[in-house]
Design a protein around this nucleic acid. Structure first.
Length: 194
DNA sequence: GTCGTGATAGCCT
DNA sequence: GGCTATCACGACG
């Protein structure tokens, strides 16, 4: 299956984000191969997007967002969970797409083991923290090249049926920027977080 | 089904 | 001491 080239990511974040819907996130984890079809994302820009880590006064945590496209920006949130972003825009311009939901296609048993307990399958990857846990994504993958051997994105041709848009989740502090319709999801998919 | 809340760590003022 | 691009669980009905 063809991996998405760097040129796919080297575009405006608001174009890359909806284009990622229907693409497949692939993770090699030991002998396991985990695949999830992306069904929900959010776009985060650079300054002056007040909801973005890249627009903080000291965006040290988000420096990967300013780097070359086609890399992973991973951060820890609420002390317990991780969130996966895919860096967009040309090198030097901040922008990333938060992956909020994927539909599990391969490696379900490994995902169930990573999530622990008796988690219903519909809760495996229907949220940014959940999917990172299921895919074994943590800070070790921050800055990883998406054309390496552990994490990448493939185009398997299963585009989204229909795309919906709305405000981003959990950024109410960001004033007018919180109301931008920069969350994109596939209509009706069970693995959308809300 | 909805709602409220606690967990937990790194960085902020 | 407060906040965070979250989640799971228990109470309620």
């Amino acid at each position: 299956m063809p991996r998405l080239p760097r040129s796919f990511f080297a575009r405006p974040t608001l174009q890359v984000a909806p284009d990622l819907l229907g693409k497949c996130l692939v993770r090699r984890l030991g002998d396991a191969r985990l695949v999830g079809r992306i069904v929900e994302v959010e776009a985060y820009l650079g300054h002056p997007d007040a909801a973005s880590h890249a627009s903080r006064k000291n965006p040290q945590r988000a420096k990967i967002m300013f780097g070359p496209p086609g890399h992973a920006y991973v951060y820890m949130i609420y002390g317990m969970y991780h969130c996966l972003n895919l860096v967009a825009e040309p090198d030097g311009v901040a922008g990333a797409v938060l992956v909020r939901g994927v539909e599990p296609l391969e490696g379900l048993d490994t995902m169930r083991g990573n999530r622990g307990k008796a988690m219903p399958d519909r809760n495996l990857t229907s949220g940014p923290g959940k999917l990172c846990q299921a895919f074994g994504i943590d800070m070790r993958l921050n800055g990883a090249n998406l054309r390496g051997r552990t994490l990448w994105v493939e185009d398997r041709g299963h585009g989204p049926a229909r795309i919906c848009t709305g405000p981003r989740i959990g950024v109410d502090y960001a004033g007018e920027w919180a109301r931008k319709p920069w969350r994109f999801w596939e209509e009706g998919n069970a693995f959308v977080s809300k």
